[in-house]
C-alpha cells in the first residue's frame, strides 16, 4: 500500500453570503468542507451512498447532496446551508411550516429535508401530495414517518405558514 500525499487545492466558495477560502486535499468532500473548514455543522452526514439526503444543501440555488461532491467541484460557486435560510430572526416559511406541522423530531435529517423541500417548491410551487412524496424521495427520515413533513411542505406551498403558532 502506498499513500500519495497530494498537493492541496485552493477552494473559494460563498456560503450563506460569506466568502470562504481554504486549501484542502482534492478528496475533501463538500460536506466535510462545510462542516470542518467553514465550521457550519448544521449540515449532517447520514450515509455513505448519496441515499439519505441529510447533507442536502443548495448549490447555485438547487438542492444537491454535499457528500457526493468534492469541495473542488464547488470552487467559485454559491452555497446555501440551513444556517443561511432564515432572514435574521425571521424563519423561512419552510422552517416555520416544519415547526407548525411538527415535521421534525430528532432533527438530524431536518436541515437536509428543509433544504430539499425549499428546492422542491422552487421547481414546483404547487405540488400534489404525490409530487411532494416523490420530490422528497432522496431524503430519509426515521422519526416522523414523513406524514408531517409532507403536510408541512403542502402547508408551505399553500402559503399557510404563520408566525403566530403556539399554545392554542
Amino acid at each position: 500500500m502506498h499513500w500519495r500525499m497530494k498537493a492541496v487545492e485552493r477552494v473559494s466558495v460563498t456560503i450563506n453570503g460569506a466568502e470562504y477560502s481554504h486549501e484542502v486535499e482534492p478528496r475533501t468532500l463538500l460536506v466535510n468542507y462545510i462542516r470542518e473548514q467553514a465550521g457550519l455543522t448544521g449540515t449532517n452526514i447520514g450515509c455513505d451512498t448519496s441515499s439519505c439526503g441529510a447533507c442536502t444543501v443548495h448549490l447555485n440555488g438547487e438542492s444537491v447532496k454535499s457528500c457526493t461532491l468534492l469541495a473542488v467541484q464547488a470552487d467559485g460557486e454559491d452555497i446555501l446551508t440551513i444556517e443561511g435560510l432564515a432572514d435574521g430572526e425571521r424563519l423561512h416559511p419552510m422552517q416555520e411550516s416544519f415547526r407548525e406541522c411538527h415535521a421534525l423530531q430528532c432533527g438530524y435529517c431536518t436541515p437536509g429535508m428543509v433544504m430539499a423541500a425549499v428546492s422542491l417548491l422552487k421547481e414546483n410551487p404547487s405540488p400534489s401530495e404525490r409530487e411532494v412524496r416523490l420530490g422528497l424521495e432522496g431524503n430519509l427520515c426515521r422519526c416522523t414517518g414523513y406524514h408531517n413533513i409532507v403536510k408541512a411542505v403542502l402547508h408551505c406551498a399553500a402559503g399557510a405558514s404563520a408566525t403566530n403558532g403556539g399554545a392554542q
Binding site: T41, G42, N44, I82, L91, Q95, R99, G107, G166
Partner: peptide
C-alpha cells in the same frame, strides 16, 4: 403546544 426544541434544530441544526 409547538416544540421548544424546534427553532434551533430548524435554523442552525442540532449539536450532535
Amino acid at each position: 403546544v409547538l416544540r421548544k426544541e424546534d427553532p434551533k434544530l430548524l435554523t442552525v441544526g442540532g449539536t450532535y
